[in-house]
Design a protein around this nucleic acid. Structure first.
Lengths: 214, 214
DNA sequence: GACGGCCCCTGACAAATGTCACGGCCGGGA
DNA sequence: TCCCGGCCGTGACATTTGTCAGGGGCCGTC
């Protein structure tokens, strides 16, 4: 592509963040096959993204959503303020509508689910680096359909805490609330999600990506 | 390693099974970097493992546990009977004690979780191909500690069905049982898991890998 | 200032859930 | 053969959960 004799252009510098070391390493191998891409940093925790990015100065960061320390969405937001020139491509297992919305709001340039063909990843990286947006069209439609979370902050918090599977008393203790209040929040959440159950409400909210941290 | 002038030895033929295309492709890239390994087949569903293996005749199959169609454990068992010479290395996201036990019972030669370093995967493949067993020592200890599932077949089935989050009436309808019986099974499962809840019981059983198919 | 939204709490009620004791039906050992 | 364990069912009961109707406090906006 470049003019002969001019030498290869500078490769795109990549940061990889995924909590599964095997997947991280495999992605590094995959992307390193491309001549114009170079993996300059790998981390396994969300709260290591910004420090590693400061050291390695990447052009594009590939972030998983599910990570210890700090989820990928929050890491994306932090990265955008710390290194505004570094673009973010979110790569996640779950194509949950809310994830895409939150990722875009956090300043991500692209959103790719892990069951897209491997060949397309490098292209997605190049597109993002070029300033374009990369979004799965199917998922975008779902996002529009699902809309924003109808849950209030408190309801979300209660529902998130209820995932572990404790009693109302447990939740009340953990959140420093009265049992009645917890029940009211749960009831509201059940109503808004259209569920018939606490468990079902949790499942629905989770599938829609409404239970993401903070 | 091989005698000079003798040419490279036949590479180890690999089959990759993982439902996430990106991960599958990345693993293929990672393993293809090794000169003595060759990926000869890739599938995204458990029920495609045996047909693909028949066509490509691999030496080692890397199977994910979570797959549509047929889970990796069942696929391993089917593969062992269809192609006894092909060894199985289970590669999974979750290091659940029951998974390891079930995998070994199904005839797998190795069990690796996805947060092991990428460098070790090729070695694990070679070990398995050489007839050795590869098992995460930490996980092996947990497996011993967790023991076999205390749940009876019916209890397991009821608990598994209850994951979706329906009412007792729903479960009774789905399983063609009386509501009282469902409640009894649930109660027994709650008692055996030490949970205080249906939800908690499901969580505990899932973490221990007691809810696997069939 | 009035209004509306969210939060927190209370109390009471119906419905669902979890527990227990019981009996009957099988099939596989001792 | 008998016995035991798992399975299915019944009925009754206490507890938990979900719903509803209140009340008060705290912001924001109109």
């Amino acid at each position: 592509m470049s003019a002969p004799g001019a030498g290869p252009p500078d490769p795109i510098r990549l940061l990889l963040a995924d909590d599964q070391a095997l997947v991280r390493g495999a992605l590094a191998a995959l992307l390193s096959l491309e001549e114009d891409l170079s993996v300059v940093a790998e981390v396994g925790r969300g709260d290591e993204v910004v420090p590693a990015a400061r050291r390695s100065n990447p052009d594009v960061a590939l972030l998983d959503v599910e990570m210890p320390g700090l989820d990928g969405i929050a890491a994306a937001a932090a990265l955008r303020t710390a290194l505004p020139t570094c673009r973010v491509l979110v790569v996640t297992t779950f194509g949950r509508p809310g994830y895409l919305r939150r990722a875009m709001e956090a300043g991500a340039s692209g959103f790719v689910v892990k069951d897209t063909p491997a060949r397309q990843l490098a292209d997605a990286v190049r597109r993002v680096h070029a300033g374009l947006r990369v979004v799965d069209p199917t998922l975008a439609a779902e996002t529009l359909a699902a809309g924003v979370s109808p849950l209030t902050d408190r309801e979300t918090e209660v529902l998130r805490t209820a995932r572990g599977g404790g009693t109302v008393a447990d939740l009340a203790g953990a959140l420093h609330l009265s049992e009645g209040t917890v029940r009211n929040h749960l009831s509201a959440a059940i109503g808004k999600t259209g569920a018939r159950n606490r468990a079902e409400a949790i499942r629905i909210a989770e599938q829609n990506g409404w239970l993401l941290g903070e």
